[in-house]
């Protein structure tokens, strides 16, 4: 048993630098969407490697160990006590190692996702069956989301009727929108252009049609848009 304890603690020890590495990797670059892509690539690599190892092993055994004659039986030896323990603790340690590695990476990016920058532009989102309303706080209320490029934007969301979920695939963010509760997401548009925000919590008949444009414009254009939108809003009221 002592032998396996040594192996186990050795493996756990080897993990710590990994966890530390995972934390370091995210400093400097603060755009969450880019970091998400990087994490995704890491995970994709991780699961592909595991998948290929197990897949190849399965194919190899399935081909190699075909029955030679109908009366053949397999010859898997009975495991000794030490082998049994080894086949429990070593794989468990490896699985745990991978879990811990991924948890550490996932956690550090999660912290980025939850810590809204101080200077973020705040927009209030209210969802209805089946559209969104964006309130910029100065009388501007729109049904499309216009945001400035390069500035963090935080959406503070609540629902007027049923559950919805606000999803901008381009910016890798999503959070449910609920009546009686407030949720938030933040993102930072990198380049100008129009993308889609869409509902991802089943909300009834037109759930599949509940989407809107997210228009990222250069900061100057955004200021101009805001002035114009405000004037229009005042004219109407």
């Amino acid at each position: 048993m002592k032998f396996f304890n040594t192996i186990l603690s050795g493996l756990m020890g080897a993990l710590l630098p990994f966890a530390a590495m995972a934390n370091e990797a995210y400093e400097g670059d603060m755009n969450p969407a880019d970091q998400w892509d990087r994490l995704w690539n890491t995970i994709l690599l991780d699961i592909t490697v595991i998948g290929v190892i197990f897949g190849v092993a399965a194919i190899w055994m399935m081909v190699k160990y075909r029955a030679k004659s109908p009366d053949d039986v397999g010859s898997l030896p009975k495991l000794t006590r030490a082998q049994t323990m080894a086949w429990i603790f070593i794989p468990c340690a490896l699985f745990l190692a991978d879990d811990l590695f991924l948890s550490a990476k996932g956690w550090s990016l999660w912290n980025v996702y939850r810590q809204v920058p101080e200077d973020a532009l705040e927009i209030k989102v209210t969802s209805y069956q089946w559209y969104w309303e964006f309130d910029y706080g100065d009388g501007i209320v729109t049904e499309e989301l216009t945001v400035p490029v390069g500035k963090p934007v935080v959406l503070r969301m609540t629902s007027e009727d049923v559950l919805h979920s606000f999803f901008i695939p381009e910016y890798r963010v999503k959070e449910d929108v609920m009546p009686g509760r407030v949720t938030y997401i933040w993102f930072q548009p990198k380049k100008a252009g129009t993308t889609v925000a869409t509902c991802t919590e089943f909300c009834g008949t037109a759930h599949g049609n509940m989407y809107t444009d997210v228009i990222a414009v250069p900061p100057d254009d955004f200021t101009a848009w805001r002035v114009k939108a405000k004037a229009e809003a005042e004219n109407e009221s």
Partner: peptide, 22 residues
Amino acid sequence: LVGGLTGIPLALTVVTVHLSET
């Protein structure tokens, strides 16, 4: 293998922020 391994990204909270309900 496919079903189990694709569950791993979905176990990560932050990855699921993009992938959930897709």
